[in-house]
């Protein structure tokens, strides 16, 4: 699609969408949101990019092949599940680490659940983009 308005708009929109998707990913911990929805939003950014500037440019901008992103995400999600083994818990038991914990305040919680969600984010992001790019290139 050769439209200057779309192309210029996409430059900004793509970045904003990816940023917003990251916000959704992290917000998903206590409120509606999460890895799946974040991945969907993030991928729309690059889908828009591909529509405006072509898939070749979008692939260049992404730098990594979307399939690899998806598989790396699967790996991260799996590792987050396996991590529980170190503590002798069952597969996918959440492990928590509280940074700066004080008796009154829990500090910043970091958990394997978050890493699992990051994995989901990457899987969704990568697989949507691989499908869309492949379809765009076929047509």
């Amino acid at each position: 699609m050769n439209s200057i308005i779309l192309r210029v708009g996409t430059q900004y929109l793509c970045g904003i969408l990816v940023l917003f998707s990251l916000y959704m990913l992290i917000r998903g911990h206590n409120e509606p949101g999460g890895g799946f929805i974040g991945g969907l939003i993030g991928s729309t950014g690059f889908v828009l990019f591909a529509l405006a500037c072509g898939t070749a440019d979008a692939r260049n901008a992404l730098k990594v092949m979307p399939q690899n992103i998806a598989m790396a995400g699967l790996g991260i999600a799996l590792l987050a599940g396996i991590y529980a083994a170190i503590f002798g818990d069952a597969l996918f038991t959440g492990q928590w680490l509280f940074i700066n914990e004080t008796p009154e305040d829990k500090g910043i919680p970091i958990s394997t659940v978050l890493f699992f969600d990051i994995g989901v984010y990457l899987v969704v992001f990568g697989s949507i983009l691989s499908i869309v790019f492949a379809m765009e290139e076929e047509i």
């Binding site: 799946f36 697989s127 499908i131 492949a134 379809m135 076929e138 047509i139």
Partner: peptide, 20 residues
């Protein structure tokens, strides 16, 4: 829904490939 979405995307690509 998520799984159905994936399957639908795949089936659509397959039909397109079949057509071409």
């Amino acid at each position: 829904i998520v799984i159905g979405f994936g399957l639908f995307a795949f089936a659509l690509v397959l039909m397109f490939r079949a057509y071409s």
